[in-house]
Each structure stands twice: as structure tokens, then as C-alpha cells.
Design a protein around this nucleic acid. Sequence first.
DNA 1: TTATTTTTGCTAACGGTGTTAGGTAAAATA
DNA 2: TATTTTACCTAACACCGTTAGCAAAAATAA
Lengths: 199, 199
Amino acid sequence: MGILERKLRQKEEVRDRILTASWQMVKEEGWQSLSIRKIADAIEYSVPVIYDHFENKEAILFEISLDGFRLLQGKLAAVVKKYQDPRKRLQELALAYWNFAFRHKEYYQLMYGLGMPCCGAGKMKPEVNAFRDFIGNDIGEIIRENKSDMNEACFKTYALWSVLHGLISIMIMRTSDIDNSSLNKKVMEDTVATFIRNL
Amino acid sequence: MGILERKLRQKEEVRDRILTASWQMVKEEGWQSLSIRKIADAIEYSVPVIYDHFENKEAILFEISLDGFRLLQGKLAAVVKKYQDPRKRLQELALAYWNFAFRHKEYYQLMYGLGMPCCGAGKMKPEVNAFRDFIGNDIGEIIRENKSDMNEACFKTYALWSVLHGLISIMIMRTSDIDNSSLNKKVMEDTVATFIRNL
DNA sequence: TTATTTTTGCTAACGGTGTTAGGTAAAATA
DNA sequence: TATTTTACCTAACACCGTTAGCAAAAATAA
């Protein structure tokens, strides 16, 4: 009696098509122009079918943002595997985070609510904090090596994350207000290097 | 012949009422629930009247965001007047920026596009960059005193701004995802202190 | 003072949005 | 074959930003 299985499979497939169609449209036209009706059009179903798979539009965005978090997590995991020295690794983690933000601007905007409603804040998924947790490990290790104050590890972690997120946010949201040459990857690399030296 | 003047004054008054009504509603119900129709209701005029004063909704938001930038600028100017030592002053500027962000969350969100479209990016108003310019002066002075590399002044400025903006953004957008006690004013003050020491 | 023009502000619409109620036809079950 | 369940659609609701077009009021000209 594989009928039920086939039905479930087909239902899952429609769900997937909703997500991939949405993501496709976002990459082509940006978040602002994504609408339930356009999604329905793209998957060749009527509008209410979408609500059989997602509670509302925000739930779709949340699901896509999780894709973003998982993609980032994968990139970071690869860096962690590749480098052993915690200082070098921290540099490379920061670089990977930076590159992710600009290569997948749409994901980044959705994940952190840049210029759009931030969906799913507070749903406590572990992948949401992957970057913080990865750099937290290395920062802790370096602090231990340096015999610095271990109590500072936690908020040093937020400090590094913040400076990266801040640079990225300002670049994405206010590119046109600032001199572009003065705010680039070199600023980031230098700031991170100084940060590591001072742990 | 004061008729023309009176008319101009009345027109100006309606414009003001649009802005204050909008701001009132935003403070009470948040940006998401602000609509042209509700504004029209509040000022007791029909909808098209609003378009006699503003090109579109974004222009209203832009005007309000300028109010925010000017309010911030005032706070910063007071700090600059009060403190002379550039190190102390830098600390106090950072604190004032931080306090502004949390005391006027709605302004800050609008000014930097946190969780909403960022209106008026690239309109090149000087008050938009008040904070950057204020801290830039002190950073330059400290670097000169320290006989450090003056070429770094510019991007040190962005580094400090970024870490503040990053901390604030993460706190505003993802409060519920992170341990609240680990990301607070103390993190900010400590990070700024370390930053100043390393100029 | 009357006729004409300008200004002012309105109603009503256009084309969109997210969301849902209610019904029909197909499929599965009895 | 009759009944129930499922799948899916049409059409609507209540909004949204924006604008065309018109009526009344005010200012100006004759």
C-alpha cells in the first residue's frame, strides 16, 4: 500500500517547489517583490494550496532563512576542518562569514533583518548561532593560551561578531552614503587581526 | 497682503501634522502598522492631500529619519561640548550613541533599516554621518598623539562605528536568540575601552 | 458686482497585498 | 455502487500605496 507514501512524497514535493520557486524569485527580483500570488503562479497551483504547506508568508521566509543559516554553517564547518591554529582559524572564519554575506546578500538580509522584517527571531534553532559558537571556541582557546581573563571570552565573542555584522550591515544598507574605498575587506581583516592580537 | 503667507503657513502646518501624526502612530504601534490611510484619518483630511505634501510614503519616512539623525546629532554635540579629553570624549560619544539607539529604537531602526526598508540611503545629508564624523575627529587626534599611523584613522573610525552598530543591531533584531545577560552595555564599554587603548 | 480662473480637497477607482470561507470534483473507502 | 474523504479552486474580505477626475470654494479679473 504505497499510495500513502506517494501522497506524502508528492506533498513534500509541492512544499519544496514553493521554497525553491520563492528563492528563485528573490534572487532575481529581491525580497520586496515576493508575493504569495507570484509563488502560486510559479508552482502552477492556486493560492490557498500554499497555506496547506505553510502557516503564512513569514513561515516561508523563516524556512528560507534556515537554508541560509545552514549554508553558512557548512562553509564555517569546512574552515574549522581545514585550519588547526586557532588564530589563523579565527581569521578564516571571519573571512568566510564576510564572503558569505556578500555572495549571498539576500540570505544575509533575511537572516538578520537588514532592510526587511526579520522572520523567526527567537525560534532557538542551533544553526542560527553557528558563527557565534564557532568563533567562541577559538576565542576561548586563545584566551586560555594567553592566560587572559576567561570570563571575558563570552563577550569578546560578541564583540568580534558585532564588528563583522556592523561592517557588513553598514556596507549593505548605506553603501551610497559612505566612501566605498574606505570601507572594504581590508578594514575587516585589519580589525580582526587587531582583535586577535588583543585577546 | 498676508493671505499668501497665511496659506503657506497653513500648508506648512498640515505638513507638520502629517509628520507628527505619523511619528505618534509609529511610537504607539510600530512601523509595520503605519499606513497612508491611517495618517489621513489622524489628520482629518482625505488621502490625496498627503500627496500634496510628500511624493510618497518613503518621503515621509525619510523626513522622520532626518528628525532622528538630527536628534542624535544634538546629543552628540552636547557630549563634544562637555568633554575635552579625546579619549574620555570618545567613550562618552559611544555611550550617547548606544543610549540613543535604545531610547529611540524606532528612530534607530528607520535610520539604519533594521527590520524595515531603509529609506533615503544615499541622499548625502551631513547629519546622517554625524556620529562617524564626531568620532573620526577624536580618533584622529588620539592617533596623532600616539604617533600611530595616520592612514589608519579613517578605517579605525568605521571599525568603532561598526562594532557599536553591530552590537545594537544584534540586540534589537535577535534579542530572543541570545543570552541577554551576556550582551549588554558592559560589553560595549569594554570593547570601546580596548579599542581606544589600541589606537 | 459679476465672470473667470485658480486652488483645495474630495470620492472613487486601479492594481496590488496576505489570508480565508465555501464549494466542487476527484479519489479512496465502505 | 454509495459514501466519505481529500485535493483543489473560485471568489471574496480587508487591507495597502497611488492617482484620475470632479465639485466646491477662494482669489482674481472684467
